[in-house]
Design a binder for these strands. Sequence first.
DNA 1: TATTGTTATACTCTATAACTATA
DNA 2: TATAGTTATAGAGTATAACAATA
Lengths: 141, 141
Amino acid sequence: MSSESLTSRLGYLLKHAQQRLALMNSAALKPHGIDGRELAILLVLADHEQESQQQAAGRLGIDRTTMVAFLDTLERKGLVTRRAHADDRRKNIVELTEIGREVLRNATEAADAAERDFLTPLSPRQGEQLKAALLAVIESS
Amino acid sequence: MSSESLTSRLGYLLKHAQQRLALMNSAALKPHGIDGRELAILLVLADHEQESQQQAAGRLGIDRTTMVAFLDTLERKGLVTRRAHADDRRKNIVELTEIGREVLRNATEAADAAERDFLTPLSPRQGEQLKAALLAVIESS
DNA sequence: TATTGTTATACTCTATAACTATA
DNA sequence: TATAGTTATAGAGTATAACAATA
């Protein structure tokens, strides 16, 4: 029998699991004044200092024109700064501010708590197996 | 250590796994002339005949105004028909046509093949465990 | 009055094209 | 000429508000 109901299809399960975690993440991050994508940007910036905003955008898989608006927002919130690259003044080096680092720390902890909450129905081992399985199917590029 | 890189976060893994399967699904469905959401609609219609289009929209979690455009497209493709409900002429009963049933059959097989392809890096048992884990975290409403 | 389907409209998100300043 | 950042604009996708038909 190839015919199965929608709600048992893998695509449905993945999409709804993703949406549910995104919702929980969003709620957990709200007190810290950022959303999920902003946290992703802060994580990339913290992991790769001294990179141009276009390089950071590339890591995040978002367009450089979209990156401009995101950084505008984060800069307005005082979480990042832009400064011209010393050797190539066309490039902007984007860095976290002190406040940015603190928000990143607290927001990451909140997101971690949301993940643990999300994984409650699973045993710790099953949670690890879920992450390992997702990593495996992603990397089979 | 709470700080981890973006690409090892559960949210990132779920989102990218979902996107990858959606891409493979889209490619597999293309020869059958429908996309993933249209397949979802056909599946719901096949599973719940004699329902109004608003009831079907509810099952899919999409707005009734959005449903109108989707059904317009599917009707134009000859896959579904609308007819007034006998007892309540405000309602539209939506049904699959013969062609609609055949497209659903073939498209479902193609989507099944895409899922198997997607799960290639995992053992059959691991694939089942992945689906079970996703179902568990979704249902813990 | 309330509900179903529909239409018109607005809003969000993102990408494309064109501009500037640097190289 | 080419590239980084920016801006203006357009497109996809979806939701909100208003309307006609029916209950």
